[in-house]
């Protein structure tokens, strides 16, 4: 085998093939296929109920698909169907190599422990024990997400919504994942906070060279953050491609409707 092939193969981080997920008679995701490379940001857009979050939960190992495959290129196992691995191995991949940013920071944070402990916890879960080092890294991440260092010992419930979301992002990046899932990360934030968060996510993703999958119903967010888009309707991917191409020259009727429904300022 030549030297080129494994490297090219290595660029693929996630390959989803013919993924189906139904809840009883309801098909939430139907025959979804796509792939993701290292360093790429993929946006998933579509109206409420189109299957975006279900898809994200399936590919992040939280929901077992009814059919199809989710291949992830992990450090330990190489390219492998995550649902063919043991529950333990799958959890380990999630812990070591993934981040998951919830729409509501309360779902992704532990509200009873300090902000600093929230950020350091993923390091502990990955076996780190040196308290001083973890503290230092937490402080470093507080700075990177522009949180006030003086608040590191406060509990997240004393933080504003925007601060909680930045805390959640720090918690999900500190262990140096290769893939981060984000479910409406800027939903529920006011626009000035949202702009700041977008800028921050873009910079972090580029600096760390990680891949991200971002579910959003906000076309503006998708345009600014995502390299590529998947457009979902009724569980199907109706269109996918380069972000600006999908938004500027949509080919499918639903995408045309979606794009033409965006309010102009």
């Amino acid at each position: 085998m030549s030297m080129i092939t494994p490297i090219e193969r290595d660029e693929q981080l996630l390959v989803v093939e013919g993924l189906d997920k139904s809840f009883g008679p309801i098909g939430a995701c139907r025959d979804v296929s796509f792939e993701l490379r290292r360093g790429e940001i993929l946006g998933i857009v579509g109206e409420s109920g189109s299957g975006k979050t279900t898809l994200l939960r399936c590919i992040s190992g939280q929901l077992e698909p009814t059919g199809g495959q989710v291949l992830f290129n992990s450090r330990r196992h190489g390219m492998h169907d995550i649902f063919a691995l043991s529950e333990q191995d799958r959890r380990r991949i999630a812990r070591e190599e993934w981040g998951y940013v919830h729409q509501n920071p309360r779902d992704g944070l532990r509200m009873r422990v300090s902000g600093g402990a929230n950020v350091a916890e993923p390091l502990m879960m990955n076996g780190r024990r040196h308290y001083g080092e973890m503290r230092e890294q937490s402080l470093n991440w507080f700075e990177r997400v522009e949180l006030d260092l003086g608040r590191i010992d406060n509990k997240p419930r004393t933080f504003s919504g925007g601060m909680q979301q930045r805390l959640q992002i720090a918690r999900n990046l500190i262990h140096n994942p290769s893939l981060v899932f984000m479910d409406e990360p800027t939903g529920g934030l006011d626009v000035s906070v949202q702009a700041r968060l977008l800028d921050l996510m873009r910079v972090l993703v580029r600096e760390m060279g990680l891949a991200a999958i971002i579910v959003t119903h906000d076309i503006g967010v998708a345009r600014l953050l995502a390299d590529r888009l998947l457009v979902m309707k009724s569980g199907f991917v109706v269109e996918q491609g380069l972000t600006d191409q999908v938004l500027d020259d949509p080919q499918h009727g639903y995408t045309q409707l979606l794009v033409s429904s965006v309010l102009q300022i």
Partner: peptide
């Protein structure tokens, strides 16, 4: 121009 840029298909 947009077709050259890959923006229009």
């Amino acid at each position: 121009l947009r077709a050259i840029y890959g923006n229009y298909v």
